[in-house]
Design a protein around this nucleic acid. Structure first.
Length: 580
DNA sequence: GCCGTTTTCGGCCCGACTGTTTTCAGTCG
């Protein structure tokens, strides 16, 4: 069973936590944390790199040096890391568990285990309720109460929430603040929302106003706020519905640029940017840039000016993840990322002929209104009974309608099908029917529990069919609802490139599938990509922005995305594949 | 433990908030 980058990252994350408990050098701890994050985001499975004898490339990952590279190899070859086992043996397992509670760090966790004897979150809750925690020296009733609240909040909300769910909440809080306090000139979502991460852990909102205290008082009294976690003059944290945490920072207008940069993050990007600035003799903070030699603070009204002062072009928020973006920008090699304006059409759209809500007319009109040159209507195939999939006869009937709409709306309409990939890898429509379509989007909808090898072969078999144009939502995940299928994506990427099949970046905020790191890897491998909304109603065509953002997070340029091409080129590409 | 437009040694981002503290440690982002 191969070990995933996420599992390797988790080990180093635990290693860092244990070293922190042990009281190790904080920079060593940070080194492990940084490596863990970089490994988690690394596009290619490290297991593949080691298996293919490319161990020396491990040190190309930012933050991975000789020692950590050796531990990665050890883990992949032997299934364990001796140094980790040794440090783990020095502490009761409860320490790491307790540190999962927000507000409980290494110091507190160790004291709770050693001096109160708790090992689990349940133990901890009991110990707080019977007063044993508050009785500790340098603890008190308020500290204990805060930990208890954190435990309850943790139980309400364990996971990160999908971007599509967080965004409306963030906008509601921001606009509520603006309405109630006219002195606010800006209130905007920042943090991982502004970076368009597929899921977010909390909501960050930056507010520009002359009086921070007034903003915090207003925040605390908002109707959607259920609890105030922290409240100072410049910064506050509250809980809103579903236990979602909202962090607000207030700044004066003149520091707009530096605060926007700071609060957008990511934290790792900021750390690296601050190190970069230090080498220039500059010190960065949310308030501006200080010349270390003179002590003078320079303020910035825009992010562009802030980055420019560091000799850098503006870096798009989507790629501020602390990978190589600063070095690349400094060399003047930053890619021009794909934009929404580059998108010329949508390749995956449903109508009420299958499980969509709106008729083909409405979907076509909506695509036209977005300025698209083309749209593919891809209703489900017959086998998907729950989605009222189309039989070959219904498909032919629909084609006549689409031809008439094409003239009426002046937009190229591709008739396609989202054809089901059956459990054995065969397709749900015969080749002669597929051949009558302009393009074919193939997807897995059933037997999602198949083992890795079987699922991988099933999907590759489907891609063997020359009529298959796009593999849709390749991992099948539904954010917050369904885990991705177990599939060897490296094998799928290679097969897709060899066959000239495009992989979908499904833009629906419920899916975002492929996800950012997969997109990055697919792009590296040379797989053509398509950004599609999978819209089931006309408004959902607007989800394209989520998909474009994910592609940008994967460092995609327009050239990597098939639906930035004019329709003539798309048609030629489909024909070429069919000829083999 | 990592890393280099000062460096293979000696640094390592920076500030806000809380609670329990008479001056700061712990935690977080």
């Amino acid at each position: 069973m191969p070990i995933s980058n996420e599992e390797i990252a988790a080990l180093f994350e635990n290693m860092a936590a244990l070293l922190e408990v042990k009281g190790e050098n904080v920079f060593k701890v940070r080194a492990y944390q940084r490596a863990a994050r970089a490994i988690e985001q690394h596009p290619e499975p490290l297991e593949v790199m080691v298996r293919e004898g490319r161990e020396e490339e491990l040190q190309g990952i930012p933050g991975v040096g000789e020692a950590i590279a050796a531990k990665i190899v050890e883990l992949i070859r032997t299934g364990r890391v001796r140094a980790y086992e040794e440090v783990k043996a020095q502490f009761p397992p409860g320490v790491l568990t307790l540190m999962e509670v927000p507000g409980v760090g290494p110091k507190t966790a160790l004291r709770l285990v050693r001096e109160v004897g708790v090992q689990t979150v349940e133990d901890l809750e009991k110990a707080i309720l019977d007063g044993r925690v508050a009785a500790l020296p340098r603890m008190g009733p308020k500290s204990a109460e805060n930990i208890l609240r954190a435990i309850h909040a943790m139980r309400r909300k364990e996971r990160r929430i999908p971007l599509g769910d967080a965004l409306p909440v963030a906008e509601a809080v921001a606009s509520a603040l603006r309405e109630r306090l006219p002195a606010i000139t800006h209130a905007l979502p920042v943090g991982s929302i502004r970076r368009w991460r597929d899921t977010v852990g909390d909501i960050d909102i930056m507010v520009v106003a002359p009086d921070g205290q007034a903003v915090m008082d207003t925040l605390a009294r908002l109707p959607m706020v259920t609890q105030v976690l922290a409240q100072g003059p410049k910064k506050g944290s509250v809980l809103v519905a579903q236990g979602l945490q909202v962090d607000v920072r207030v700044v004066e207008e003149e520091a707009f640029g530096s605060m926007l940069q700071y609060f957008t993050g990511s934290q790792q990007h900021n750390i690296l940017l601050r190190e970069y600035a230090n080498r220039l003799g500059l010190s960065l903070s949310e308030y501006g840039i200080t010349d270390v030699r003179t002590g003078a603070l320079e303020k910035f009204s825009s992010e562009e000016a802030f980055y420019r002062r560091l000799g850098l072009p503006w870096i798009p928020p989507e790629i501020r993840e602390g990978l190589q973006e600063i070095e690349v920008a400094a060399r003047g090699e930053a890619p021009r990322l794909v934009t929404l304006e580059d998108i010329k059409g949508d390749f995956h759209v449903h109508t009420n002929w299958s499980d969509g809500q709106d008729p083909p007319e409405a979907m076509v009109a909506a695509a036209k209104a977005l300025g698209y040159a083309y749209v593919a209507i891809t209703d489900h195939s017959q086998g998907l009974g729950v989605a009222r999939g189309l039989t070959p006869e219904r498909l032919r009937e629909q084609r006549r309608l689409l031809r008439s709409l094409e003239e009426r709306y002046g937009i190229r309409i591709f008739q396609g099908s989202e054809v089901d990939i059956r459990a054995d890898g065969t397709l749900d429509l015969p080749d002669e029917v597929l051949g009558e379509l302009d393009l074919v989007v193939a997807a897995v909808h059933s037997a999602l529990q198949q083992p890795r090898e079987k699922m991988t072969q099933r999907v590759i078999k489907a891609m063997d069919n020359p009529y298959v144009t796009v593999l849709a939502h390749p991992t099948g995940r539904l954010l917050g609802e369904r885990e991705p299928v177990d599939i060897d994506l490296e094998a799928v990427f290679t097969a897709a490139r060899e066959r000239g099949v495009a992989l979908e970046v499904n833009a629906s905020p419920k899916r975002l599938d492929l996800k950012d790191t997969h997109i990055m890897r697919a792009r590296e491998v040379g797989v053509p990509l398509v950004i599609s909304t999978d819209a089931h109603r006309r408004e959902a065509l607007g989800d394209m922005r989520f998909g474009v953002a994910q592609a940008r997070r994967g460092w995609c340029q327009a050239a990597h995305i098939v639906n930035t091409w004019p329709w003539e080129r798309v048609e030629a590409w489909v024909r070429e594949r069919r000829r083999g």
